[in-house]
Design a protein around this nucleic acid. Sequence first.
RNA 1: GCGGGCAUAGUGUAGUCUGGUUAUCACAUAGGCUUGCCAAGCCUAUAACCCGGGUUCAAAUCCCGGUGCCCGCACCA
Length: 511
Amino acid sequence: MSRSAAVESDQLYAILRRRGVLWPTADVYGGAQGLVDYGPAGAALKRHLEEAWAAWFLGVSPDFHRIDPAEILPEAVVRASGHLENFTDPEVVCDHCHAHFRAETVLEKARPEGVDGLSPAQIGELLTQQSARCPSCGSKELAIPRPFNLMFGFDFGATGRERAYLRPETAQSSYLAFARMWDVGRRRLPLGIATIGRAYRNEIAPRQVLFRMRAFTQAELQVFFDPEHFRPPFPTVADELLPVLRVDRRRAGAEAPDPTPARALVADGLPEFYVYFLVHVHRFLRDVLRYPADAIRFFEKSDAERAFYNRIQFDAEVRVESLGGFKELGALHYRGDYDLSRHSAGSGRDLGVTLGDGRHLVPHVLEITFGVDRNVWALADAGLSIADGRTVWRLPPYLAPTPVAVLPLIAEEHGRVADAWRAALGAAGIPAVSDDRGSIGRRYARMDEVGTPWCVTVDSETVAEADPARATATMRERDSRAQERVTLDTLLDRVRRGVVPPRPAAVELSG
RNA sequence: GCGGGCAUAGUGUAGUCUGGUUAUCACAUAGGCUUGCCAAGCCUAUAACCCGGGUUCAAAUCCCGGUGCCCGCACCA
């Protein structure tokens, strides 16, 4: 997919708004920062993207299951997960260099026991008493800290005494579901728990429309496994080239990925299971979402960059021209047994399992996470081209908001037969649209812009054929603009096959 | 959150500096005529000064506040 000129972010957003893909929430009131609404085309695209993701990743193993958990978490959960603690650490802001610090970092020497339980005013007093200096620039111009929590918290229940939070990530829901799913999944490892849903963060500065939002949709797969025995069929993917950018090459200033065989990554120390899933994520981006192969890279995070509980982390990045470079669209986190251990401690319930050989184990977790909204933008960025006054959105048929449009060449003369074709598509479960307004070229153009892969034009030849089974209409393909006369049966067959998203060959994963 | 820039029909814009007729143009949308397989043409119509306050005889225009957007920094457990 190439484009004559990069589409600007504003220009892309204008097209998306105009075509009813998405717009700011409450925009008649001036908008609400960090929130967007999806219109008909966007909602369909997003839904198709989610289904394609589920088909692909649930297709990796029959032991991967999708759940749909609640979006509200009781306080005890976010306390155990560490979100409450980490988010409520008071902040100190340096007025001189604008650096932000945790209050306890600045007051380390003066108050080694930490600042828990102190009010912002008390911390402010301490800063003055101790003549605290900015750890970054040494200035004494430290602003009075103000508590800030990235979670949306609220009173829960009629008494108002309980607190609850909108989940800041969907992963927690899957960890909480593990104990139930262990039984539902017939007590086998690996066990995959997938969920697609919204997560909420009260971001300080939402930016770039779908990239830093206050309510966003994540598609996540948590794979629970036994680190000693998890053996995916690695040889089947060993030769696949992965566009990785490893920490050592990053330190040397490299930005371009280095295509590396999967087996070389394993020889270099990465676990087979991790690389196996890296391959599946790569295939999903390249073959299912069809990002240009040279626009994908796996960006390894260093010890300092990743959260302490992540043992290995590669961000799945795609070059998004409208936003000026590579953007994180997903990631693979090897989280060890951190999450289940935390929730064991927090809930008082042992979330470890006893395996067939009698061993007791807290399963490890490989988290595969995708930002659904970000991918909607990236698909628009990668697929939309504006050239010679023609705007085309090259989306795979199974992602396109509308797979097919039925167009009567002349509304009055061909409308009835066109309606019949559209009804036949509808009866086959394919949501076809029709359009009889304006010239045929204009209608093709409208469909190109929203990514409809096929247009079917009913003409006098179609109408003249007495036997409906033998009647043909023009089937026009979006990208090539090639036309071909097809019968209704042929059309149904092609469209039906086209709208099914690819899935990997299912394999039994052991361990 | 800090600094800078910006906000006019569905979309992109002219007008703002220097306050003053019915707010410009294009595309899009809707109707009519015409055409009939890749955004044709002509006619017509719908449609906007982000919100609130102030200055003034008079505010899209000047001032203040709010909201939103863009860029940089910071943040993104």
